[in-house]
Simulated scan of single mutants.
Amino acid sequence: MKTLKNIFLLFLTIGMLQSCIVSERPNMDFFSDSGYDFHGARFMSVNVPMMVAKPYIRKALKEDGESEEVINLIRKISKVKVLTVENGSEEMLKDYAQYLRDHQYEDWASVKHDGDHVNIRVKQNGDAIKNLLITLNSGKELVFVDVKGNFTTDDISKVINSVSDK
């Protein structure tokens, strides 16, 4: 019985760690479409295991003096995917934006700072936000963050206001 328990724990650990593996293949729908020509772009993707990451994130935010709104928002996150693209193009970014519009994502905010562009898009049903996509564009280097959870527009507004106050 003890051996069976150890084998189960080993497989459970391997399953949890598997989601921590960094891959050179895209982990987001638009980019994993094999029919699109990415013109030599290089990808690095990470699936963040929230069960493991949440305690570390909350602790770091508390140590940094972040507001309770930001810390409470972390509780509502169920999954985070990060994709970095080297040697990306404006055409790819435009096609990605069109793909998101076709899939009912709404543009919420666009910020330009020192030549970098940050776009925030959401997919919502009434007041419920299920997906939050953040795009960071710095020339040919792009970062895409896909956050899944169960948020409200009020949750996002509180976070934006707490960050804006700083």
Rank of each mutant, 00 (worst) to 15 (best):
S138T: 09
H117Q: 09
L17I: 10
V82C: 07
D102R: 10
I74W: 02
Y99L: 00
N137G: 00
D102P: 01
K2N: 04
V118P: 01
H113C: 01
N125K: 15
A60R: 11
Y96A: 02
Y99F: 13
V159E: 08
G126S: 06
Q124H: 11
K79R: 12
D29K: 15
V145R: 02
Y105C: 01
R101M: 03
H113Y: 09
D37S: 10
G65T: 00
E86R: 14
P55E: 05
M51G: 15
V22K: 14
V82T: 07
E69Q: 15
K130S: 13
K5R: 11
Q124E: 13
D95G: 07
S164E: 13
Y96H: 06
M1F: 11
T135P: 00
P49V: 06
S34Y: 03
Y36Q: 09
D64T: 08
K166R: 15
K140E: 05
F43D: 00
S110D: 01
D154P: 00
Q124T: 04
Y56I: 13
K76C: 00
S32R: 15
S89A: 03
K148T: 04
F8K: 14
G40S: 08
G126T: 04
M1E: 04
K148G: 09
D165L: 13
K62N: 06
D127W: 02
L136Y: 13
G88A: 13
L4A: 15
D154E: 14
E91A: 12
S162W: 04
P55W: 12
Y96F: 15
K59E: 08
S19F: 14
D165A: 15
V82A: 12
D107M: 14
F31W: 14
I134R: 04
N137P: 00
S19L: 12
T152H: 06
F11Q: 08
F30V: 02
I129T: 04
D114P: 00
I129F: 12
S32Y: 12
R58Q: 11
T13W: 10
R75C: 01
V48K: 03
S78C: 06
I21Y: 14
D114Y: 08
D107S: 14
M92R: 09
K2P: 00
L100P: 00
E86Y: 09
D116I: 12
L132S: 02
A53T: 07
K130V: 01
N161W: 05
R121G: 00
T135K: 05
V48M: 10
N161E: 13
F11R: 05
N72I: 07
T84N: 13
I160F: 14
D64R: 15
A97V: 05
K79M: 08
Y96Q: 01
V70I: 15
L17T: 06
H39T: 08
V118M: 14
F43C: 01
D116H: 06
Q104F: 14
K112R: 10
E90G: 09
K123L: 03
K112E: 03
G115H: 05
T152Q: 02
K130R: 13
K76N: 00
V122K: 08
K158W: 04
P49N: 11
F38Y: 13
T84D: 06
Q104M: 11
S110R: 15
D107Q: 12
N27A: 13
I74Y: 02
I57P: 05
Y105F: 15
N161V: 07
M28L: 15
D154R: 14
V143W: 02
K166H: 10
K112H: 07
S162R: 03
L9Y: 12
N131W: 03
T3D: 09
L142N: 06
G139H: 06
G40I: 09
